[in-house]
Design a protein around this nucleic acid. Sequence first.
DNA 1: TCCATATGCAACTATTTGATTGCAAATATA
DNA 2: TATATTTGCAATCAAATAGTTGCATATGGA
Lengths: 108, 108
Amino acid sequence: MESRRDVFQAIADPTRRAIIMLLAVSAMTPNGLAEHFNSSRQAVSKHLQILTECEVVKPESRGREIVYHLNNHKMQEIEKWLEQFKQLMAKRFDQLDNVLNKLQNLKK
Amino acid sequence: MESRRDVFQAIADPTRRAIIMLLAVSAMTPNGLAEHFNSSRQAVSKHLQILTECEVVKPESRGREIVYHLNNHKMQEIEKWLEQFKQLMAKRFDQLDNVLNKLQNLKK
DNA sequence: TCCATATGCAACTATTTGATTGCAAATATA
DNA sequence: TATATTTGCAATCAAATAGTTGCATATGGA
């Protein structure tokens, strides 16, 4: 539980994805989050620790409570990667279009 | 190596992300892919197996070679999830805007 | 037919993961 | 001050992961 801490690892786990969605709606405490899950408070806390390590989430102390906020900026890394991927796909279809166009021209 | 086979698990590994990017450019054989990595052919083959299981990739037999194609449709599941997330975030900012507007109104 | 090539499958291993339980520290409240 | 609440941290465990090596299978070419 030490390595490869990045956003993609963060969203690999369904519980963490759920946590991210909940925090997207509003910042919450570990206890508040844990109420939404079947697993123990500590399990949720561990997920929060992982999410904190890869900076998807940021803890803010408020008295004895700790409110966890989502770091939208980090989430954008996924979007960025997806965008790169989509560009490659688009380029590929362009090439396919070229091939199809050439075939079309041969028909003429 | 049996469980939780979904797109998010697929893109959690950096080698698999690289494979996806390569296949986004053009369909390739396992050997062709393996040339781009330091790890063994079998390691790449295992990743392809995982990617096949979660339908991110589709094998097509061509004689003794097997050409792997990307399944763009499956990749869109990530986009879809990200879209849901962004909507929640947007809604949250709307609420924040509302609060700010109310404060603004109090000042008047 | 014989051999090289391309690939998948099985067995094994070290490391990581996700979860649990128990405990300690810090803060609020009576 | 004494007590309850909120949280993090450590130890432990079963399962999954990523990788390796070795072997079997199938196709194409000499």
